[in-house]
């Protein structure tokens, strides 16, 4: 197991290097001058040149690249060009919010999606199945900035149960949990819609297998047939989807973060892109890529746990 983990982490190094290089090139291809963003529209070319020199973006691109890779390999991502705050501190400040939201949304998605998917599969083409499919289609079709605003209107403005501003104080656990409810529901219900569909089809495939018929013939209780024999064998595609979705959520929950005014990695990435904050973007992408590698690794390890035929 440990050998597998080490091999996977080593295999991630070329991926990280490729990402480093691609991000470095892409952020510089995009038009827009960080010096102009920082200095504003009244800046003289002299001031812009002085700032470019201070930021180190006036030297040849190869020198910039080597400096960046060299620093990144030592874990030094530098400071944001715009705010001059250290990148690791910036990421450290927002990452807990992203992790909170991702895990909570995953929890909602799995807690709702898996049972509903199983229920729909057990009532194939019946009213429950049709309703579940319709609801999951609605869940997938609703953009989070619409569903989020609806939730805010209902639970914040009408019933006044939750706040509109979802940025919590990290040291205040009740505040953190309280402000997580609506964003987690918004994202989690979309995830639940995906998981419902995947669970339904995986369960349908699983329940038509010979071993299910055998189990029933042996007299195994139906509940056990479904949850142990059926679900366990259907769980690989579900874990795959959850793993992929968690990876997406880490960076792509930006709309939810904006609607609920939460800090988060996605929001920082978009902000850095708008402001042409090269150093911040580069640092963020490396960290993001690393998180994706970790999520994929955990997913692979779960495969081994769920299905002994998968060798780790």
């Amino acid at each position: 197991m440990m050998g597998f983990v080490i091999r996977r982490l080593l295999a991630a190094i070329p991926t990280l290097l490729a990402v480093l290089t691609l991000v470095f090139i892409i952020v510089r291809i995009v038009p827009g001058d960080p010096a102009m963003v920082i200095l504003g529209d009244q800046a003289t070319p002299e001031a812009a040149a002085a700032l470019r020199s201070r930021l180190g973006i006036d030297v040849p691109i190869w020198t910039q690249y080597l400096r960046f890779v060299g620093a990144a390999l030592t874990g030094d991502f530098g400071a944001s060009m715009v705010t001059s705050r250290p990148i690791l501190a910036e990421v450290g400040a927002v990452l807990p919010h992203t992790v909170d939201l991702t895990l909570a949304a995953m929890l909602v998605g799995v807690a709702v999606g898996v049972p509903v998917g199983i229920w729909a599969a057990l009532h194939r083409n019946g009213a429950i199945d049709v309703a579940a499919r319709l609801l999951s289609l609605i869940g997938l079709s609703f953009p989070v900035f619409v569903s989020g605003i609806f939730l805010l209107l209902a639970f914040a403005l009408h019933w006044r149960i939750f706040p509109v501003i979802g940025a919590a104080d990290l040291s205040d656990i009740p505040d953190r949990l309280y402000k997580l409810v609506l964003p987690a529901l918004t994202l989690g219900l979309v995830m639940a819609a995906y998981i419902t569909r995947v669970t339904r089809s995986a369960m349908l495939a699983s329940l038509s297998e010979d071993y299910i018929r055998t189990a029933r013939a042996k007299g195994v209780p139906w509940r056990r047939v479904v949850w142990v024999h059926g679900l366990r064998n259907a769980s690989l595609p579900i874990v795959t989807v959850v793993g992929l979705y968690v990876g997406i959520l880490i960076g792509n929950s930006v709309l939810t973060e904006i609607v609920f005014n939460r800090p988060g990695l996605g929001k920082v990435i978009v902000g850095a892109l708008n402001q042409r904050d090269y150093t911040m973007l580069q640092g963020l992408m490396v960290i993001y890529c690393f998180l994706i590698v970790v999520v994929n690794l955990v997913t692979d390890l779960l495969y081994g746990v769920l299905d002994p035929r998968v060798k780790t």
Binding site: F145, I149, L152, L153, A156, L157, R160, P163, V164, I165, A167, I258, V259, F260, N261
Partner: peptide, 18 residues
């Protein structure tokens, strides 16, 4: 407070959070 979404900021103001 940095609230880029106009709709969310207005809701927060109406909700007496601002």
């Amino acid at each position: 407070r940095f609230i880029p979404s106009d709709a969310s900021r207005d809701l927060a103001f109406q909700n007496r959070e601002l």
